[in-house]
Design a protein around this nucleic acid. Structure first.
Length: 755
DNA sequence: TGGAATGATGTTTTT
DNA sequence: CATCATTCCA
């Protein structure tokens, strides 16, 4: 058990705690993951059966890493058998086993957010409500909140407080929508994300035998990021660990950043009352960051009223101060960050992977992408539009879903007329009405038109029956073919592959490649595990089990060395030597939406704390005085969070007047004043000393565009300039494109290239 | 019915 | 400035 020597005293105590409830309050960077992994490894070393350990994490990635690390200590063979994963994936797995008790099909679908919203939208329309009043997104949030607090549609409708809330919000029909939505999900054999937790609770509440079975199975229960659990999760954990009470929760109230999703710090307090004799371990020594970073972070989080006081400290070197940069625009902020990375990399020998750019909202990634691309620095964006959210991927997956579960309404609506087969909106509307009348899924109407007559014409009925035959033919192969063979077969015979191949535009080619990538992924999945070649064939339903729960961060990282870009939320639990926290402006970070209450503002502050504490050796803060929002420039003050950092830890380069000191972090150009001068901002390349690498025309080159010149446009192709009018930013060119005819284009928007 | 053309509308954060 | 949704024509 030499691994115990890697631990400090408090960590070691926590790891060696075997029986009885325990809580670890772990400051940022204090080795919380290490405690969790070592404790599990230790349990196994002491003889615990891996199958009896349930370990819940927040992301799949965290689970995988933990499993790997445990594998290094006790061997992969053992580690493989631990019940480890996210709440959603572990409980979806259990629900797959037990779903028949709840009258869900074995192959129930998991609706992602987009599916939920789309179904909600349909339901709202069908009930005759105004989409402007009942916005699917906010209704979804409301329903989600109810489910996370285990409030069923019936409870919801009967609760006078909730009803009066909805009435005063001007949305009295929310409960009715909730009920209809849930009915539709159930009829489709589908659960949304929140249903997974909700139904798990139903299972444990209404089926004592099941409860007993899992209580006995899970002798040890461990929960990571406990501060981010909501009520539904709390109750599941409590029930599952009730028999043995070997429950270990690890968290940090200062890093609670998911209250908008129902996360409840209250759970930490509940823990004390549920297990009065629990053991508490506090990890306060930070091993990750320099003193400057740790102290800076402390000086900010101190401003929060709601917190469990603790002292995070470090033995690490003081390190450099945190540099603050002011940029003139979002584009300049991108250039600044890219340049700084470039220069640091030149001076010191480090990897791209040592850098992270963290922002508040996904939409901010654009300017960094552009700037990094120009300097040929490879990057990877986590989150945002994930691979699985792309249209072409969702389309193909919808066929897979339908094959596994034909009742899946959202999948059916998505592909019944894609590729086009003459089944239009009117037909689908009639089907929905018919399904509602008979109280069955859409599929029943298509599959058994004689049992459920829908009054459609013979021509349409034939088309529908052809579609049904196709799906049934896929379905017949579900158990016999392996996942890849069937997936490929479906891609071909549904017509998707052909449809995408026909589109030779660059985007079309990219879509085709995405499909290939998906198929390749399935091929890998289908290959027999060399460790256990005896295992049965991996079918497409096996593949589909968890795809809805996968996110972008779960894709293989590849071995390429890249700069990481992500929201602060998705950076939780990660660390990087160099961290840029960008977009530090009022109304952006803290978000405009969070300025209404102290609680919300404190959550933003915790978010800033999380961001800062990701950095190991250096952190950089930046803000832009102008930022484009909906195509309009917006001016904001710098974020209050910068001012909240005790000044001794900051290097406020942003306060130095322009031109006075411009060395930057190794040679920075001065602020770009000419930008502000004109009052109107331009998008596209910033007209500065760096010449754009691609040859798109920067403002300085407007004059090169003269009547008679031939130019290239991204969308319209080659064209000839006929005339020029207007001045400076408003310069407009009349151009004739053989492919698109005569167009008037604003030079500052049109990306033109000289031919 | 399908596609193109035009007009509203939206940016927190995620399993 | 996107994307989406609705509208209008073939």
């Amino acid at each position: 058990m030499t691994y115990l020597n890697d631990l400090n005293e408090e960590q070691r105590k926590a790891v060696e705690h075997v029986d009885g409830p325990m809580m670890v309050i772990a400051g940022a960077g204090s080795g919380k993951t290490r405690v969790l992994t070592y404790r599990i490894a230790h349990l196994i070393e002491l003889g615990a059966d891996p199958f009896s350990i349930l370990s819940l994490t927040f992301t799949n990635k965290a689970a995988r890493e933990m499993k790997d690390r445990i594998g290094h200590i006790v061997g992969d063979r053992e580690a493989k058998n631990i019940w480890m994963g996210t709440f959603h994936s572990v409980f979806a797995r259990i629900l797959r086993i037990e779903c028949e008790l709840l009258n869900y099909p074995r192959e129930f679908t998991i609706y992602d957010t987009a599916d939920s919203r789309s179904l909600l939208k349909a339901v709202i329309k069908e009930l005759g409500h105004d989409e402007k009043v009942y916005k699917p997104a906010s209704i979804h949030a409301r329903i989600s909140g109810a489910k996370n607090n285990l409030i069923s549609p019936q409870d919801y409708l009967e609760d006078p407080d909730i009803q009066s809330e909805d009435r005063s919000a001007g949305r009295p029909a929310t409960g009715e929508i909730y009920l209809a939505y849930n009915t539709r999900c159930f009829r489709a054999g589908a659960m949304d994300f929140d249903d997974i937790l909700f139904n798990m609770n139903v299972l444990l509440r209404d089926y004592p035998a099941v409860l007993l079975k899992y209580q006995h199975r899970f002798r040890y229960v461990l929960v990571d990021e406990y501060q981010d659990t909501n009520f539904a999760q709390y109750l599941i954990i409590k029930k599952l660990s009730a028999a043995h009470e070997n429950i270990c929760v690890v968290g940090d109230d200062a890093q609670s950043i998911y209250s908008f999703r129902g996360a409840n710090i209250q759970n930490i307090l509940n823990f004390k009352s549920d297990y009065p004799d629990f053991a508490l371990y506090k990890l306060e020594q930070n091993y990750r960051s320099t003193q400057n970073i740790v102290n800076a972070a402390n000086s900010v989080i101190e401003k929060n009223r709601d917190q469990i006081r603790k002292t995070v400290w470090t033995d690490n070197p003081a390190g450099e101060r945190i540099a603050v940069h002011k940029a003139a625009s979002d584009n300049d902020e991108g250039i600044f960050v890219a340049q700084t990375i470039f220069e640091i990399k030149n001076v010191q020998k480090i990897f791209n992977g040592d850098f992270a750019i963290l922002y508040r909202t996904n939409a901010q990634s654009r300017s960094f992408e552009e700037a990094l691309r120009k300097l040929n620095i490879p990057y990877r964006i986590y989150g945002g539009q994930s691979f699985y959210q792309r249209k072409e991927i969702k389309d193909l997956l919808a066929y897979f879903r339908l094959t596994a579960n034909p009742r899946d309404e959202e999948a059916l609506k998505r592909v019944i007329n894609y590729p086009t087969r003459g089944i239009g909106k009117t037909t689908i509307d009639k089907l929905i009405v018919g399904a509602e009348q008979h109280g069955v899924s859409l599929w029943e109407l298509i599959d058994k038109p004689t049992t459920y007559p829908s009054g459609l014409g013979a021509a349409i009925t034939n088309k529908l029956s052809d579609f049904a035959t196709m799906i049934l033919s896929f379905r017949a192969m579900l158990e016999t073919k392996n996942a890849f063979d069937l997936a490929h077969y479906i891609a071909q015979h549904s017509g998707i592959l052909k449809d995408l191949y026909a589109d030779r535009s660059p985007e079309g080619v990219a879509r085709y490649q995405n499909i290939e990538e998906l198929l390749n992924g399935i091929r890998e999945f289908s290959e027999p595990d060399p460790q256990a070649p005896e295992e049965s064939v991996k079918t497409l339903s096996d593949f589909m089990v968890d795809v809805a729960l996968l996110t972008d961060a779960d894709q293989e990282d590849g071995d390429e060395d890249k700069v990481s870009m992500m929201t602060i939320h998705s950076a939780k639990g990660l660390e990087f030597p160099y961290v840029f926290i960008v977009g530090l402006e009022e109304n952006l970070f803290p978000s405009q939406m969070a300025l209404n209450s102290r609680e919300e503002l404190e959550e933003e502050r915790r978010l800033f704390y999380v961001a800062l504490t990701r950095a190991k050796s250096r952190a950089f803060l930046s803000y832009a005085t102008t930022r484009f929002r909906w195509g309009q420039p917006v001016f904001n003050d710098s974020s209050r969070f910068i001012a909240e950092v005790a000044s001794e830890f900051l290097d406020r380069k942003d306060l130095v007047g322009p031109g006075k000191r411009s060395s930057g972090f190794g040679g920075f150009r001065q602020e770009r004043q000419q930008f502000i001068k004109s009052g109107t901002a331009w998008s596209g390349s910033s007209g500065s000393s760096e010449k754009s690498i691609d040859s798109s025309v920067s403002p300085a080159d407007f004059q090169a565009i003269q009547p008679g010149v031939e130019v290239m446009h991204e969308r319209f192709g080659k064209g000839k300039v006929l005339g020029i009018e207007g001045q400076d930013e408003n310069k407009k060119a009349t151009i004739f494109f053989p492919s698109a005819g005569q167009k008037q284009l604003l030079l500052r928007f049109a990306k033109l290239t000289l031919v």
